[in-house]
Design a protein around this nucleic acid. Structure first.
Lengths: 126, 126
DNA sequence: CCGAATCCCTAACGATACTG
DNA sequence: CAGTATCGTTAGGGATTCGG
């Protein structure tokens, strides 16, 4: 088990569910791309450099299950599957944008703190 | 490699650094507890049920390195070490609280979506 | 084209024991 | 009291292959 309140994947703690999506890099990237409009599976695959089909499928399923993204199948040949953000997903991405702004704004402070910390901890190393 | 922009732990992507702290359950819990005031190592250990000393030490080091928490050593016997949130840490916890509120507010929708999804996907199982 | 199933390997975590 | 070091286990993710 990964944490103190983990229980399968369902939320014993509702906050953790949301935070886990933020902590998942692929989920964030998929949401970011869907923010620009609906997209098909392989379009997302090409757009998100480095993602494996396994992770993309898995991520999309999680987003769909949580109601953040929708999955629409067009019964054509070959089959087309289109993914899009739901209203909930767009609400979520709003907060994601706020966090991105905060992160960008405070990045200098964080990087400075890391340099200071790393510099102060060269006692026993190398 | 864990993601498309992973490069050790230092931020190639500043957003990911912040998101990773949110995704880390222990970091969130430690910050939540420090929000109520400074605390010593073993006090945090007792307060956060289920955390191991290894994870607590590791989490505190990451928070300190990123400038979210401060570490103050009192040269007494036995030694006292007090941890507290910095201004940056308090700013961070503000956003954490907002996310918690969002999560709580939308929890019913998420849980409903999950039930619907799970119900629709009993095709081949059990 | 969309996705699931398998294999394998790494990194994360808990438990334990030890140091200042 | 406040940590670090080592060990064993396990879950997550990439590569590949097969099905609808």
């Amino acid at each position: 088990m990964a944490g103190p309140m983990a229980d399968g994947d369902d939320g014993v703690c509702p906050v953790r569910d949301v935070l886990d999506r933020l902590g998942d890099a692929w989920s964030v990237l998929v949401i970011s791309h869907l923010e620009q409009g609906p997209a098909r599976f392989n379009a997302l695959r090409r757009a998100i450099a480095g993602i494996s089909q396994r992770m993309l499928a898995q991520t999309l399923r999680k987003l769909e299950r949580d109601g953040l993204a929708s999955r629409t199948v067009f019964p054509t040949t070959p089959p087309q599957v289109e993914y899009a953000l739901t209203d909930l997903g767009r609400s979520f991405s709003t907060h994601l944008a706020q966090l991105a702004q905060w992160a960008t704004h405070h990045q200098p402070a964080i990087r400075a703190s890391r340099r200071a910390y790393d510099a102060a901890h060269l006692d026993g190393e190398e």
